[in-house]
Amino acid sequence: MFLVNSLSQLPDTARQILTHAGSNKIFVFYGDMGAGKTTLIKELCATLGVQEAVTSPTFSIVNEYIITGGKIYHFDFYRLKTESEALDMGYEEYFYSDNYCFIEWPEKIPNLLPENFTRISIQVTGADSREITVENIS
């Protein structure tokens, strides 16, 4: 568990999360609206070498970023009404591409998540503070 009391702590937290994940490249993010899922994903992307602006894919559902040796796919499934919408967009091509996948609102696609992933739960504990729990699921 990580206690983050300011944005200045995010770079170190992101490095530790990636180390904890090991070879896992699928990350699912749980937290209330405004908890900081996208903010943490921006920092993870920066740590992995993304040079371009990282934005929430709320309307596009998925954003793609280039890193050395691969890509990062950033999903926001908040607007999905059914899991079949993820099927229609070909989620398997992304999830099983051996590229990083950062998934916001995975509770919208519970039956489509792969067997192995890193689960990140963000709990708001104050105006600028968060409790981040990280666990590898297999």
Rank of each mutant, 00 (worst) to 15 (best):
residue 1 M to E: 12
residue 3 L to E: 15
residue 5 N to F: 13
residue 6 S to V: 00
residue 7 L to N: 07
residue 8 S to C: 00
residue 9 Q to A: 07
residue 10 L to R: 00
residue 12 D to Q: 13
residue 13 T to L: 07
residue 13 T to Q: 01
residue 16 Q to N: 07
residue 17 I to V: 03
residue 19 T to D: 09
residue 23 S to W: 07
residue 26 I to P: 00
residue 26 I to R: 10
residue 27 F to E: 05
residue 30 Y to P: 02
residue 30 Y to A: 02
residue 35 A to V: 06
residue 36 G to A: 07
residue 38 T to E: 00
residue 41 I to H: 01
residue 42 K to V: 05
residue 47 T to I: 01
residue 48 L to N: 01
residue 49 G to M: 04
residue 51 Q to K: 15
residue 52 E to C: 08
residue 53 A to S: 15
residue 59 F to I: 07
residue 64 E to G: 07
residue 64 E to Y: 13
residue 64 E to S: 15
residue 67 I to M: 03
residue 69 G to K: 08
residue 73 Y to L: 09
residue 74 H to Y: 13
residue 74 H to L: 07
residue 75 F to I: 02
residue 77 F to S: 08
residue 79 R to M: 12
residue 79 R to A: 09
residue 79 R to V: 10
residue 81 K to L: 11
residue 82 T to G: 03
residue 82 T to V: 09
residue 82 T to S: 14
residue 83 E to R: 02
residue 84 S to P: 02
residue 85 E to N: 09
residue 85 E to S: 04
residue 87 L to C: 11
residue 88 D to G: 04
residue 90 G to F: 09
residue 92 E to S: 08
residue 93 E to I: 01
residue 95 F to G: 08
residue 96 Y to Q: 05
residue 98 D to F: 00
residue 99 N to D: 15
residue 100 Y to A: 06
residue 100 Y to P: 00
residue 101 C to F: 02
residue 102 F to A: 05
residue 102 F to N: 06
residue 103 I to M: 12
residue 103 I to F: 14
residue 104 E to L: 08
residue 106 P to D: 14
residue 108 K to I: 04
residue 112 L to E: 02
residue 115 E to W: 09
residue 116 N to G: 05
residue 121 S to L: 12
residue 122 I to P: 03
residue 125 T to P: 08
residue 125 T to W: 05
residue 128 D to I: 10
residue 128 D to F: 15
residue 130 R to T: 10
residue 131 E to A: 14
residue 131 E to R: 14
residue 131 E to S: 10
residue 131 E to C: 11
residue 134 V to N: 12
residue 135 E to W: 13
